[in-house]
């Protein structure tokens, strides 16, 4: 058995906000793959769970006024199966594919992954380079927040007690490619030791090309190195440039030494390799040098 709690499954937004307004300590239940684990631990008391899965407002992947809206309840399996995500937002597909195992992917949601906000959360770096926004809904209406501002700290996001994450919005660019790679001790059933997402806008036009890189599990929240992005944007990416980029990336992070999964030195050595792998797959590296 889990520790004792009450359970409600509201069917309308009005019911949801009535519950959240009256119960500051209530916890939102989505797929439960983080929350239910916590409820087994003896230390954390929980009084009330509010299951949002009966609400339709938070489901589905759809195109809307120039962006893709992904409901917070979209499961990792649905992301993996989505054609538009695989083709246009490939880093998200990569993240879904490396996530947990099939049974977990069937339950776990994108919303839960983001709100739980663990430093190595699979969707952290892909959403960062894709310039995603969090659509937050509360009794007073909707707020839209850039994803990197939504993450305030490890396990801490910009949500008031009576608000929930409704959806993720992804801007659409005609010419955009992206990849995500992670290292873990075992393939699948472990969180990332380190993860890297690389995105390029207008990849075939070297002068106009814009490159973005985000790293996960190396700091309290996903981290972008703007200096390195500038070095890589608008120029041919030669081997020589890559060497200094890898050095800069490594120098720019200071992973905590208490990490259970790898030593800081290993993470520092690996961010560059994952970046190189992604750049190579995206066809952004100059050949034959």
């Amino acid at each position: 058995m889990f520790k004792k709690f009450d359970y409600y499954a509201p069917k309308t937004l009005a019911e949801l906000f009535e519950l959240t307004n009256e119960n500051n300590e209530a916890q939102i239940l989505a797929g439960g793959t983080d929350l239910l684990l916590k409820l087994r631990e003896k230390t954390t008391p929980h009084k009330m769970l509010i299951d949002i899965k009966k609400l339709d407002n938070f489901r589905g992947i759809e195109t809307k006024d120039g962006y893709l809206r992904m409901g917070a309840l979209t499961t990792i399996r649905e992301i993996q199966a989505s054609k538009i995500i695989r083709e246009k937002y490939t880093a998200l597909y990569d993240a879904a594919k490396s996530f947990g195992c099939l049974e977990i992917r069937n339950r776990a949601t994108i919303g839960g992954n983001i709100v739980h906000a663990s430093p190595g959360a699979e969707f952290g770096t892909p959403l960062f380079v894709l310039a995603a926004e969090a659509e937050v809904i509360g009794p007073d209406g909707t707020r839209v927040i850039p994803i990197h501002e939504f993450w305030q700290d490890v396990y801490q996001v910009d949500l008031k007690d009576n608000e929930v994450l409704a959806a993720i919005r992804l801007p659409y660019y005609e010419k955009m490619v992206s990849r995500y790679h992670r290292l873990s001790r075992v393939k699948g059933m472990d969180l990332a030791i380190v993860g890297v997402s690389v995105l390029a806008l207008d990849p075939a036009n070297i002068e106009k090309r814009e490159v973005k890189i985000a790293m996960g599990a190396v700091a309290r929240i996903p981290f972008r190195n703007k200096e390195v992005e500038t070095m890589l944007s608008g120029v041919k990416i030669t081997n020589e440039l890559l060497v200094s980029v890898k050095e800069k990336l490594s120098d720019s992070i200071a992973p905590r030494s208490s990490s259970l999964r790898a030593k800081p030195a290993y993470k520092k050595a690996m961010v560059g390799n994952l970046t190189e792998q992604a750049l190579l797959e995206l066809g952004l590296l100059e050949e034959g040098e």
Binding site: F2, Y7, A9, L29, G32, T33, L36, L37, D51, K53, R77, C101, L102, E103, I104, N106, R107
Partner: peptide, 21 residues
């Protein structure tokens, strides 16, 4: 995976699903 069952046709971990769900 020892607790795997089909939930509306899809495999899930029944140790991480509530009966009320």
């Amino acid at each position: 995976g020892a607790c795997t069952v089909l939930f509306d046709g899809e495999p899930v971990r029944s140790c991480l699903v509530l009966a009320v769900e």
